[in-house]
Design a protein around this nucleic acid. Sequence first.
DNA 1: AACACTTGACTTGTATGGTAGTAGGTTAGT
DNA 2: ACTAACCTACTACCATACAAGTCAAGTGTT
Lengths: 230, 230
Amino acid sequence: MQNARPAKVVAMGESVGPQVYRILRERIIQAELLPGERLSESDAAKSLSVSRQPVREAFIKLSEEGLVQVLPQRGTFVTKISVASVMDVRFVREAIEADIVRVVAGDPAAETVAELRRQLAEQRKVSHDDRTGFLRLDELFHHTLAAAAGKSYAWSVIESVKAQMDRVRFLSVDDLHIGRLIEQHEKIIDGIAAGDKTAAEEAIRLHLREILTSLPEIARSRAELFDDTE
Amino acid sequence: MQNARPAKVVAMGESVGPQVYRILRERIIQAELLPGERLSESDAAKSLSVSRQPVREAFIKLSEEGLVQVLPQRGTFVTKISVASVMDVRFVREAIEADIVRVVAGDPAAETVAELRRQLAEQRKVSHDDRTGFLRLDELFHHTLAAAAGKSYAWSVIESVKAQMDRVRFLSVDDLHIGRLIEQHEKIIDGIAAGDKTAAEEAIRLHLREILTSLPEIARSRAELFDDTE
DNA sequence: AACACTTGACTTGTATGGTAGTAGGTTAGT
DNA sequence: ACTAACCTACTACCATACAAGTCAAGTGTT
């Protein structure tokens, strides 16, 4: 007898809709739910011990973020990855973050630079095969940049874009070239600290392109996870 | 007796949830529903002759887009405008569209330039006090740029940002300086046609800043529509 | 064998009842 | 007159039942 009546998964004190959303979102990003996989309002509701309604609302949010695809009367599926769409979202992220670092470099606060360098030290400590650990620090780094520029809406867009990109990173078989990424983080900080807007901008543009170098390889080795209509 | 039982407003063939979303979104952007105004699932459902559920889902989508604010057990309100948040979203739009025009200017297709110039002629024809007419052409213009760059996701972000900015433009009492805006459109096209990335970028950045020149004035004259926690 | 049809088990979409929480006005108590 | 408790009328949230569409397997017919 294993969980004929599954335990309550969601906590009290917060609406269950957003909770379901976060749970599913996390599982999709971390490739626990694979691209192409079929979901179902009823199944998810049962496994989380909630009704269909909050699950449905979570599905809607996920579909707006592009993580699932809802086909009326047919089913809901984790959206397959497509090289074109990943490059498309990366383009948006690069544009936003390029302008963000220009703002930060234009008036580099000493505390900000110190905080970024502190984070850099943390990043060097993390093991090269601890994806989750590094990605958490990476997220913190980029969030700190956005916060330093005082752009909260910009960050919310980046968060959404980052989800799509992180999904790819979780599928990479080899390490994430963490060493190189950290070096690039350092170049960004150097540019900011020197007040050199253009240098900082070029550094982060290069950085954001580097992240997806493994994409073509993944598209070949795991073609079943990719949209083949391109 | 006026509309004791209101007529069916939504059409068949498409789910009502998205329809309700579009209807409310339009009414909010065009300032028919004013910032701060109270909404209600039940009321909206009754007035549209649908059930509360699709309305609720529309509210959720609107709240993600930042057009309404849902306070659990308290009510749903059209989000008030705030100078800071409008500038925040404008920043994102500028960053994205700047990179878009650089892409387009980097490889300017003759048909694209011709299409843009054709649209420019249309814009000159529209009356200076026909807000809706001009805004539709303006949206087409910017969409054409995004499409020419092949960035569909970028456009979806712009659409969301544009909603927030257009809401302000609908509150402007005077004309929208349409003449000046059209001149700037022309400068953008010129930069693209010349293959001058930097000129095109500077032109669109200036353009997107120009759009909100009336914001401070509106914030003074219609303070009740603005968030006062800033 | 091949094709058209039916049937049934799915899917998401919509409507509705009930629950818990909030806010404001009213009434009872001091 | 003032305060505190209550009470009513709302709100969004959740659960459940029903409706409508899709798809595939199976069946009957040609």
